[in-house]
Amino acid sequence: MRIAGAADERDNGWEQHQPRFRVCFFAGGDAPSASWSTDTYDAAGADVLEVVQWAQDHAGSERLYAIALVDEDHTLPADQCRGSTWLVGMDANEFQVDEDERRCFAAMLARRGKRVLGLR
């Protein structure tokens, strides 16, 4: 983790109060060259802690999960305007290109079958 010095909250140009999250569950992939099967769900009407709670409840002991914030940039062509920012984990089928991504993927593996939030 890298923390930058004090930030100025006034530098935001916009805020979104109704986020849309994408939750991906990954199964299989245990062999080094094997791919992961993916089940994907969109979630709205919740905050990120509620979505993490739901994801860990539904992942069970065998699947990995990752959560992204979904947004749209309408300055791009319609077939390219939707994008994701990973908040928890990453796409398990993507090659990890640097140490941050390798650490992120290792953390996903370490979380499998474990609860990181217990809000109930």
Rank of each mutant, 00 (worst) to 15 (best):
Q96F: 03
H74P: 07
G29L: 01
A43Y: 10
S37C: 14
D42V: 15
G45W: 05
A66R: 03
A78H: 14
A34V: 06
Q56A: 00
V97W: 09
N93H: 03
G29T: 02
Q53V: 05
E50R: 04
P32R: 07
E94G: 11
T40N: 05
A92L: 00
W54T: 00
S37H: 08
G45I: 05
V52N: 00
M90H: 05
Q96D: 09
L49Y: 14
D47P: 01
G28Y: 03
A68H: 03
L69R: 05
D57M: 14
H74M: 14
D42K: 13
V88N: 01
L64V: 03
Q80Y: 13
D30H: 11
E99C: 09
A68E: 01
G83N: 09
V88R: 00
Y41C: 11
L49P: 10
S61F: 13
E94K: 10
R63G: 03
D73Q: 11
G60F: 08
E72Q: 12
G28R: 04
T38W: 02
D39R: 14
D57E: 14
D42I: 13
W86N: 08
F26W: 00
H74R: 15
H58T: 07
R82L: 15
R63N: 04
D47A: 09
A44N: 12
T38F: 05
M90C: 09
A55Q: 00
A27V: 08
A43S: 13
D71W: 15
E94A: 09
A59H: 02
P32T: 08
F26H: 00
G28Q: 08
A34R: 07
G89S: 02
A68S: 03
D79F: 14
Q53E: 07
C81Q: 10
E94L: 09
D98K: 11
F95M: 15
N93K: 07
A43F: 10
H74E: 11
D30C: 12
Q96N: 10
V97D: 13
F95N: 15
L64P: 05
R63T: 04
H74N: 07
L49K: 08
D71H: 12
D30S: 09
W36I: 11
N93M: 03
Q56N: 01
D79I: 09
A34M: 02
D79R: 09
W36M: 13
